[in-house]
Design a protein around this nucleic acid. Structure first.
Length: 378
DNA sequence: AAGACGGGGGG
DNA sequence: CCCCCAGTCTT
């Protein structure tokens, strides 16, 4: 019913929390996405999906999820795998600590939680890599527990629907978001509701150009009423990017194997394999620095630059000067935990982070170029 | 409270 | 090139 003309224009008021669920669930029933971790009840598989999805888009996860579960079909299988196997399966997904935490948590679930993903929220959140969001996501999805979730999608939807001007990085705003996420959660089907909220954020309530015309919450959304949805949420501050020059060595033995070294077990790309490399000081000559990477102090004949690769992390930008060399040593023994010689055909067993792949590809291209001439067929 | 931690898709 | 994502943990 339209307000009387005589009355003053009412100040827009926030929608009642209980008005959200019905239209959202109705929309979800016909517009929700079909995903491999939907409509399943195996907490293990749901857990794996939620860890992969942390700060990672659905489309990216889809390239890993089935393969990972094929390799580690059960909680026991994951717990019994080696950390290197898990890291190899994770290679390219990023945030590698997720993989190590996943593996560690699996072992703990086997040893201290009767071989199950705990269904108790407090117990679950004790495990490494599982915070409040992931607890809510796993348990609401696997057991229909009435637990809220607040992720990037929910922050966007709620800050718009309720016109919340606060900075989501501040604890006061966080508290308000969790309070609202809990308040709008229906007693019935909280699992579907949480999934619906995220689908809405991902497919309709976009950061820019939100599709308000198709949104099931349009009529009650304050930002839509006031015409400023793109002003929400409060913009996040961006971290400053550090630029780093590096020199890397693609050294090949007589069997065509390349030397790989393992990164430190903490920090960036922890425990992942890469070509031997050094960080360069400002203005340092890469060609000079790279000679320190040779496995033998013997004269290195023929070190040649084969190109440069760029790799951008969220907070760091690498420029890697790649050099190629032949192993001055007759054979290439000495595989151990920190360095190993690997044939190109065996790289899949290790799993390389993307930054390493870019450098390795230069070396492989070199190999191709040497063989392609075909002037010496036999 | 702020920063570390990967990578990729889209404007 | 910039933004930012189905976050968690550390300092």
């Amino acid at each position: 019913m339209a307000p009387s003309q005589a009355e003053p224009t009412p100040v827009e008021t926030a929608p009642a929390t209980e008005t959200i669920a019905a239209p959202l669930l109705a929309w979800y029933a016909q517009a929700g996405r079909t995903l491999p971790w939907r409509d399943i009840d195996d907490p293990y598989r749901i857990w794996v999906s939620e860890i992969m999805l942390q700060q990672t888009r659905v489309d990216t996860v889809l390239n890993y999820y089935d393969r990972f579960l094929e390799q580690f079909p059960t909680l026991s299988a994951l717990a019994e795998a080696t950390e290197d196997q898990v890291l190899a399966a994770w290679a390219g997904l990023g945030f590698y600590r997720r993989a190590r935490n996943l593996h560690r948590a699996a072992k703990t679930m086997i040893s201290e939680h009767q071989g199950q993903v705990p269904s108790d929220p407090e117990a679950l959140q004790t495990l490494p890599g599982i915070g409040r969001y992931t607890v809510g996501a796993i348990l609401s999805s696997a057991h229909n527990a009435r637990l809220p979730i607040v992720d990037g999608n929910v922050i966007r939807v709620l800050s718009r629907v309720f016109h919340l001007a606060g900075d989501p990085s501040r604890s006061a705003m966080q508290k308000e978001l969790w309070r609202l996420a809990e308040a709008i959660l229906p007693g019935d089907r909280p699992g579907d509701f949480n999934q619906a909220l995220m689908d809405l954020g991902a497919t309709v309530c976009h950061p820019v150009n939100p599709r308000c015309d198709t949104c099931p919450l349009q009529s009650l959304c304050l930002a839509n009423k006031l015409g400023d949805p793109e002003d929400f949420p409060h913009p996040t501050r961006k971290t400053k990017v550090v630029f780093q020059q590096r020199a890397a060595l693609y050294i090949r033995d007589r069997d065509g194997r390349m030397l790989l070294t393992r990164r430190p077990d903490a920090g960036l790309l922890a425990s992942m394999w890469e070509l031997p490399a050094v960080d360069l000081q400002d203005g340092e000559d890469p060609a000079a620095a790279v000679t320190t990477l040779l496995p033998s102090a013997k004269r290195a004949r023929k070190i040649e630059p084969i190109g440069t690769v760029e790799h951008r992390f969220s907070h760091r930008h690498w420029t890697v000067h790649v050099f190629a060399a032949e192993n001055p040593v007759a054979s290439s023994p000495l595989d151990n935990d920190q360095r190993r010689w690997v044939h190109p055909d065996d790289l899949h067993e290790i799993g390389l982070p993307t930054a390493t792949w870019k450098a390795v590809r230069l070396g492989l291209k070199l190999l191709d170029a040497e063989q392609r001439p075909g002037e010496s067929p036999g």
